[in-house]
């Protein structure tokens, strides 16, 4: 079949791994080394208002004459920073709580399960919006709101994994030789449940990027003059009739990174052979 030869393994690996990896890598690079570039994302230049893309400024200028390219990179930093913090917060908090709960079992576990159920009873994004609304706008509050919502999925996953592993031979053996609980958790359980957690985290990054952009789109995230892809899209939609580049570029950037994170998650899941979690819809 000549058609499917197109999708031979080499080709597919390029598509499934290297493409998303390069997108994520350049995103992370731009975000981390932002200070090295001499960018002026906030510099207002009234003479350049809504200037279309040109040779000198590839992506043109926005409604205040600020360079869109610079703001895009500054927005990359915002999304990178927020999603990294949110996922790190979620994985560490959720992982530790989930593992401990499963390990300790008994009434602690029962209470924990109920708590998780209640948190999962909120549609995630809705709770994040309400929390961000209550805490007030600002990047710190966005991280807090998304973190509060995000840890539950990881906790539930970690708990489920540990319950399945708890009676594995090496854990029972460690018990038998009198290893302290923290040692069992950190040395014998956590390494084994890392794979599904990593898969979940890579999808979590995609979710966090969209959520941050969504909150900023609603005006609950970064505040002017700071740049976020979400707020750039929101501002861009107001001028999409006259300057479509303002809404197209941040949207493309956002979609590319989210797509890359999702593809990477898919690849990791297949590679690490983790079964698709039906809980993903919840978190």
């Amino acid at each position: 079949m000549s058609k499917s030869e197109l999708f031979n393994s080499h080709h597919r690996l390029t598509m499934r791994l290297w493409l998303p990896l390069s997108i994520i890598a350049s995103w992370a690079f731009l975000a981390t080394f932002l200070p090295l570039f001499s960018l002026t994302p906030d510099a207002i230049d009234l003479t350049n208002i809504l200037a279309p893309p040109s040779l000198e400024h590839w992506l043109g200028h926005d409604e205040l004459g600020r360079p869109v390219a610079d703001r895009l990179i500054s927005g990359a930093q915002t999304s990178f920073f927020v999603s990294l913090c949110v996922v790190a917060l979620g994985v560490s908090l959720g992982g530790v709580l989930g593992v401990s709960s499963a390990y300790l079992s008994g009434w602690i576990d029962a209470v924990f399960v109920r708590m998780v159920d209640i948190m999962l009873a909120f549609p995630g994004l809705l709770l994040a919006i309400a929390l961000a609304g209550a805490l007030g706008p600002g990047i710190g509050n966005v991280i807090l709101a998304l973190g509060i919502v995000g840890w539950v999925g990881y906790a539930r996953l970690a708990r489920g994994q540990v319950l399945a592993l708890k009676h594995a031979d090496h854990v029972l053996a460690a018990h038998a030789i009198g290893a302290p609980p923290w040692r069992i958790i950190f040395h014998h359980l956590l390494p084994l449940i890392m794979a599904p957690l990593i898969v979940e985290a890579s999808f979590g990054i995609a979710g966090a990027i969209i959520a941050e952009a969504g909150l900023s789109f609603l005006g609950l995230g970064v505040q002017p003059p700071a740049a976020s892809w979400g707020s750039m899209i929101r501002d861009g939609t107001r001028y999409m009739l006259v300057s479509p580049h303002l809404v197209i570029f941040p949207g493309l950037a956002l979609m590319a990174v989210v797509l890359a994170a999702n593809m990477l998650g898919d690849w990791l899941r297949d590679r690490l052979d983790v079964k698709e979690q039906s809980s993903r819809g919840k978190s």
């Binding site: 906030d42 510099a43 207002i44 009234l46 409604e63 205040l64 505040q223 002017p224 003059p225 501002d235 107001r238």
Partner: peptide
């Protein structure tokens, strides 16, 4: 949005002379 846009410009111009403005 247009008022917000004007506000962001004023914020920037005030920042240039040394006044911090939060909108």
């Amino acid at each position: 949005p247009f008022r917000l846009r004007l506000a962001t410009i004023i914020q920037y111009q005030l920042d240039q002379v040394g006044i911090d403005v939060s909108i």
